Amino acid sequence: MKIALVGIGKIAVDQHIPAINDSPDWELAATVSRHGSVDGVDAFTDLGDMLDARPDIRVVSLCLPPVPRFAYAMQALAAGRHVMLEKPPGATLAECHALTAKAQADGLSLYATWHSRQADMVAAAKEWLTDKRLTRLHVTWKEDVRRWHPGQDWIWEPGGLGVFDPGINALSIVTDILPHPIHVTGATLKVPENRQTPIAVNLEFHHPQGAQVTADFDWRQEGDQIWMIEAETEAGTLTLTDGGATLKINGERSGTAAPLGGEYPRLYAQMAQLIADGGIDMDLRPMTLVADAYTLGRRETVAPFHD
């Protein structure tokens, strides 16, 4: 299938373009961007122009920041195109529900991707936890924003999510591997005095079986980056590290992890399957937890951040 990629920024260059080019399902037929393009691929600066000029392109993949994404997604759906959304799928839950209703009404496929769920050991962790009684789960997600989001001011503006931009990756894994739903009961949002979104967050959750579930996200990490989920059960401890690429059960490594580069190829394979099945996948649980954290969160002002 021919696909158009909208937003040729860092994530598109690092992940989306290689995944599309290596896939047997897809042909990158056009790009839409004011600042980037791909050699040998039809380039546009306006989505409407691309939709008019290329009726042969059935699918649009959106890699834009969250705030402008709704308008682009709705425009593509209105033109009868299937839509794939980089995470998070929108700036608000209401936007995502509106997109789902439009796709359902028009018989189109819509996919809210959560790339961290495709990390190599997430499925194995989910299977192991299926019949275990959880007693404690803690997430530690700490990275250096300067390394991963250099000069990207949109992440500090309303709708940019701040540290929840990576933190929602952890939440996407947690909501997938736990057999019971959780919800936020408390949050502390640490916001730099010169920014609009948090640089660090502490979260507490309700678990229906009484397990203690907490998370710490921080964008001020220097040195080794930490992406870890530790789940204690009555049958032992499961630890996911490296963003879900490595799994240990009771201290013993389980399986051989593939590189994280496998996440996006799996997303594009899933999108191809959704279109073949006429399906929609808009799991909004990770985004709901973030929205609830903003609703319940106590805001603390911390030192200014300068890129």
Results as ranks from 00 to 15, higher is better:
Gly162Asp: 07
Glu157Leu: 15
Ile275Tyr: 12
His149Pro: 03
Val163Gln: 03
Thr214Met: 12
Ala187Trp: 04
Lys132Thr: 11
Gly261Lys: 09
Ile280Leu: 10
Gly243Ile: 02
Pro24Trp: 11
Ala76Glu: 10
Pro158Ala: 09
Glu300Gly: 06
Trp114Arg: 06
Ala78Leu: 13
Trp156Phe: 13
Arg146Ile: 03
Ile173Cys: 04
Trp219Ser: 14
Gln15Asp: 13
Ile17Leu: 12
Val13Tyr: 06
Pro158Asp: 06
Asp56Phe: 12
Pro66Gln: 11
Leu238His: 05
Asp292Ile: 05
Phe205Lys: 01
Asp120Leu: 03
Ala231Pro: 01
Gly186His: 13
Ala124Asn: 07
Gly244Arg: 01
Tyr268Met: 08
Tyr111Lys: 02
Leu64Glu: 04
Glu230Gln: 14
Ala303His: 11
Pro179Phe: 04
His306Phe: 13
Leu137Asp: 00
Asp144Lys: 06
Pro89Ile: 00
Leu51Asn: 01
His149Phe: 15
Ile20Gln: 00
Asn21His: 13
Arg298Asn: 15
Lys10Val: 12
Val60Arg: 03
Ala124Gln: 13
Gly7Ser: 08
Ser37Phe: 08
Gln118Cys: 14
Leu296Ile: 08
Glu204Ile: 03
Trp141Phe: 07
Pro304Cys: 06
Val145Gly: 04
Ala103Cys: 10
Gly151Ala: 10
Gly278Asp: 07
Ile20Tyr: 00
Thr233Phe: 10
Ala79Phe: 09
Ile182Ser: 11
Val6Tyr: 06
Ile182Phe: 13
Gln118Tyr: 14
Pro208Glu: 10
Leu178Tyr: 02
Glu157Ile: 09
Gly210Asp: 05
Ile177Gln: 00
Glu95Lys: 04
Gly151His: 09
Ile173Met: 11
Leu296Val: 09
Glu204Gly: 05
Asp224Ile: 14
Val139Gln: 01
Gly162Lys: 02
Thr45His: 11
Gln212Tyr: 07
His149Asp: 07
Val302His: 07
Tyr268Lys: 02
Trp141Asn: 01
Pro89Trp: 00
Glu157Trp: 12
Phe44Gln: 03
His180Phe: 12
Arg81Met: 11
Ala112Lys: 02
Gln212Glu: 15
Arg253Val: 05
Lys87Val: 02
Pro24His: 05
Thr45Pro: 05
Pro166Asn: 15
Gly236Leu: 07
Glu193Val: 10
His16Gly: 04
Arg117Ala: 01
Val38Ser: 00
Ala101Gly: 11
Ala231Gly: 09
Leu110Ser: 00
Gln152Phe: 08
Ala303Tyr: 06
Gly90Met: 01
Ala94Asp: 15
Gly297His: 02
Thr288Ala: 15
Asp176Gly: 06
Glu157Gln: 15
Lys142His: 13
Ser172Val: 01
Leu137Gly: 08
Ala231Thr: 06
Ile275Cys: 09
Glu222Thr: 11
Thr140Leu: 15
Pro89Cys: 05
His206Lys: 06
Val145Tyr: 11
Ile182Asp: 01
Pro181His: 10
Glu230Leu: 12
Ile177Ser: 01
Thr288Gln: 15
Ala101Val: 13
Ser116Glu: 12
Ala269Trp: 02
Thr214Val: 10
Asp277Val: 12
Ile20Glu: 00
Ala303Pro: 09
Val6Phe: 10
Phe205Thr: 00
Arg195Ser: 15
Arg220Thr: 14
Asp283Arg: 05
Gln196Lys: 14
Gln104His: 13
